[in-house]
Simulated assay, not measured.
Amino acid sequence: MKFMLKNHFNSNQWRIFTALILTGLLSVASSLTLVKDATGASVNLSLERSNEVLKDNVKTNRLPRPVVNAVLRDLASRQGIFSSQLQIIDYNQQTWRNGCLELPQPDEICTQALVPGWRIVVSNGKQNWIYHTNNNGRSLRLASANTPSENLPGKLPTSVKNSVLRAASRRLQKPISQLTIIQAQQQTWRDSCLELANADEFCTQALVQGWRVIVDAVDQTLVYHTNQTGSALRLNQNANQNTLAPVKIPVSELPPPLDRDIVFRQISSGGITGRTYETVLLKDGLLIRVRIGDANDSERSVRRVSVQQVQQFVRSLERSQFSKFQNLSYPAPSGSADYITYTLTSQQGTVQYNDISQNNLPKNLQTAVKAWNQIVASAK
């Protein structure tokens, strides 16, 4: 073909012919680019719709899974730890007053538009971090870092603290000495009923500055809404009626029992990566973590806690009555995706839950989970 072209075309004709060929190639490349862009747009649209479907499947005021993933990934990256060592201990919906989620950087210009989103408190058992996010977690900012857990209620006025503790004491029929305020967060309520109106109750539509306070009573928590001084307060019944109904784990799905030298074991599986990890705590304080299916054992880590910490952990399991949850599973809500399932095994039995429903577990089980997370976080 090349020989024939040289004999039948002069140089000018050859240039014209070459130009036509190049034009055709560019046209084809352009078409491919358009197809690629269209495909990318289709994928992005599918992801967005997937997130929307996920949110629709979640109960009102339940933290969407994409937001959970975004926050835990960001903090794990900042701290250089595994996201499994973190847990969300509190969250609530917010409407931020600007595009910076009310956390502008120096000299940053923020769009003055209302942004629906979330305020989230993350803990590793020793410290807490507060995040502001938008509705889907694509925009997030760290509000405060390395905040000691015990200092979270530090700014709570004494009058509010006393009022809430007295109310909780009366409701639970427990002395105030057995109650602890574990979270205190400033709020602006949208009506005089502190957004907790009773049926047929008339509420003045006026902004009320106040607090959202969580009281821990070992076996349960109470959430209160108050005004600035505590002279007006209401119990958030919905926040206190969110425990899950467990199902029995089939015997065929139970993991093998522990060797006598092992105190506790956690198996985590699922999530975005779909990987499975096993972490075991030995009586001598060794904490060993491996990835199941890792042929080269490249992700093995061996750390240690003191024997005293192991003994304290065992006592925590006993106080929380961990054995009463033997062979029970607390499943994820229907339609949930990309969640991590945790299977915890002691010498007394096994319990299973997932990171989506963690905040809705029975209080005693949450206490046991918290004690385990503290052990993992403290290992060196």
Rank of each mutant, 00 (worst) to 15 (best):
M1L: 10
K2E: 13
K6M: 03
H8R: 14
W14N: 06
W14S: 04
R15I: 08
I16A: 15
F17D: 03
T18H: 06
A19M: 10
S31F: 08
T33C: 02
L34K: 09
A38R: 15
A38G: 12
S42H: 15
L45W: 11
E48G: 01
E52G: 04
K55D: 06
K55G: 00
D56L: 01
K59S: 11
R62A: 03
R62I: 01
R62L: 02
R65W: 00
L75G: 01
A76Y: 07
R78Y: 05
R78W: 05
G80N: 12
G80D: 04
S84H: 14
Q87T: 09
Q93T: 07
Q93H: 01
R97E: 14
R97T: 15
C100I: 05
Q105Y: 05
T111L: 10
L114K: 15
I120F: 13
G125T: 05
K126D: 08
Q127M: 09
N128E: 13
H132F: 12
R138Y: 05
T147C: 03
S149F: 06
L152D: 10
R166M: 07
R170M: 02
Q173K: 14
Q173N: 14
S177L: 03
I181T: 08
Q183V: 04
W189C: 05
D191P: 04
D191W: 00
E195W: 00
F202P: 08
Q209D: 15
Q209T: 15
I214E: 15
D216E: 13
A217V: 09
A217I: 08
L222V: 03
H225Q: 06
H225G: 02
T226G: 07
N227Y: 02
Q228W: 06
L233E: 11
Q241C: 00
I249A: 03
P250T: 04
P256N: 14
L258I: 05
D259I: 00
D259A: 04
Q266V: 09
L281R: 04
L286D: 14
L287F: 11
R289E: 15
E299C: 00
V302F: 00
R304D: 01
R315Q: 09
S316H: 04
L317C: 07
S320F: 07
S323P: 10
A332W: 03
S336A: 09
T341R: 09
Y342H: 10
S346C: 05
G349V: 03
G349I: 05
T350I: 02
V351W: 12
V351N: 11
V351Y: 10
Q352P: 08
Q352A: 03
Y353P: 09
S357C: 01
N359C: 02
N360L: 06
K363E: 11
K370A: 10
A371Q: 07
I375G: 06
I375S: 12
V376S: 01
S378R: 07
